[in-house]
Simulated scan of single mutants.
Amino acid sequence: MKPRADETNTELAGILDALLASDIDITAREVARRHTSLRNASAFTRDTKRMELIRGAQARQQQLRTTLNPHVTHAQSLSEKLAEKSSDVVKLEAQVRALVASHAACINAVLRAGGMSALQRFWRDYRDVGDTLREVSAYPEVGEVVELRPKKC
């Protein structure tokens, strides 16, 4: 019968401690890569004592990760949510631009149909709409003044 390599698992314990200290994912393959005599992952997965050591180290690693950085488990979902919210913002900004253009077209149509008096009547009924648009910065505070009728000299 072939003698067992690393009977006391001291090298395995050292490798597991090094992986914990470096915060490298502990797997049987990673341990096999670093072990000097046991080069196959199955040498660890088939041995119950070695697998117990690896599982214990994995549990310690998980505990350390959640203790030191509790947000690490939520980081991926947060980045996905951020990307989704960013696309929502882009859509909403496009909607606001369309609403502002529509608003300007309505004002222009009222002006053309009935002049300034019609526009004043229109704004009497919809003053709260104009105030709301000002609150959400749908139009600039300072506007360009356009002469509708040329001045008579």
Rank of each mutant, 00 (worst) to 15 (best):
Q120N: 03
T132K: 13
G14D: 08
V146N: 10
K2I: 11
S22Q: 12
V31G: 04
A113C: 05
M51D: 10
E147S: 15
S117Y: 05
I15T: 01
A118H: 01
K81P: 00
H71Q: 12
E7L: 13
M1H: 15
L82R: 09
S137V: 13
P3D: 09
L19G: 00
E80C: 08
Q63M: 12
Q120K: 13
C153G: 15
A104I: 15
M116W: 03
K85A: 15
T45H: 09
K152N: 11
L133A: 08
A43W: 04
V146W: 06
K151G: 08
A109K: 08
K91D: 14
Q63D: 12
D25W: 05
R127A: 15
A18D: 05
A109R: 11
L16A: 01
R97W: 09
E52R: 15
A101C: 06
H74I: 07
A105K: 08
H74P: 00
H35M: 02
Q62C: 05
S137E: 12
A18R: 12
R97I: 13
C106Y: 12
D128Q: 08
I107W: 12
S86Q: 15
K2G: 07
H74C: 01
S102A: 07
T132V: 14
G143V: 10
R34H: 01
L38E: 00
F122K: 00
T36L: 05
V72L: 11
D131L: 08
A105R: 09
W123G: 02
D25Y: 09
R39Y: 04
M116G: 04
E147D: 14
